[in-house]
């Protein structure tokens, strides 16, 4: 019996030391991690909504959750000129998160893939600039994935060779996000 208490006591001592060490490290790094996350979001907003002023993109929240961002014009920061929001889609091997920016008519201003863990060398090519540039100036209905050559002739999003699933996942998630967010914004306006 005595031995059990001794062993439990030692184990408790070790875990107590370990957890106090961790709480110190957590305290030291907490703010920096928050800052890095905010920086990453801010950088993606700048890419998604280049038409808005960098410091005039404000989150619209419901509780703690950010529904979307409102962007205001650089020359007049009281004039609303675009919205940005997150599109999340299931890719080949991961959730793909994309920041999408649209102007007030619903035309895409820019997109930025924020996080993805697709197949290295194939699916990860969705992060390439040329792929993301294709979304510019399109509206939700234009977002269809077609072979690359067709996209050049007839419009649409040219798929990445060997990564059709990832290309389609990004495109579909953006289409859905635009539709739902714009519907949300319209509903809010009607309520006013």
């Amino acid at each position: 019996m005595k031995e059990i208490f001794k062993l439990a006591g030692i184990l408790m001592l070790v875990t107590a030391v370990a957890s106090s060490a961790l709480s110190i490290v957590n305290n030291l790094t907490k703010d920096e991690i928050e800052k890095q996350k905010r920086k990453a979001v801010k950088a993606s907003l700048a890419v998604a909504l280049p038409i808005s002023a960098r410091n005039a993109i404000h989150p619209i929240k419901k509780g703690d959750k950010i529904l979307y961002y409102k962007g205001y014009a650089p020359e007049d920061t009281t004039r609303l000129n675009g919205y940005a929001f997150l599109a999340i889609g299931k890719g080949y091997s991961s959730k793909i998160k994309t920041m999408v920016g649209v102007d007030t008519t619903g035309k895409i201003c820019g997109i930025k893939i924020i996080s993805q863990k697709e197949t290295p060398g194939l699916g990860t090519k969705i992060e390439k600039i040329d792929f993301q540039e294709q979304f510019k100036n399109k509206i939700a209905e234009d977002l269809k994935v077609v072979p690359k050559q067709t996209a050049e002739r007839e419009g649409g999003i040219g798929s990445i060779t060997g990564a059709t699933i990832s290309s389609k996942a990004v495109t579909k998630s953006i289409r859905i996000a635009i539709d739902t967010t714009l519907a949300l914004i319209r509903a809010e306006k009607d309520n006013l």
Partner: peptide, 18 residues
């Protein structure tokens, strides 16, 4: 002991090499 150091690495990396 190992888990403690791994958590430290995890937090420090996230703060410095995001």
């Amino acid at each position: 002991v190992i888990a403690t150091f791994v958590t430290i690495v995890d937090l420090v990396l996230e703060a410095t090499r995001y």
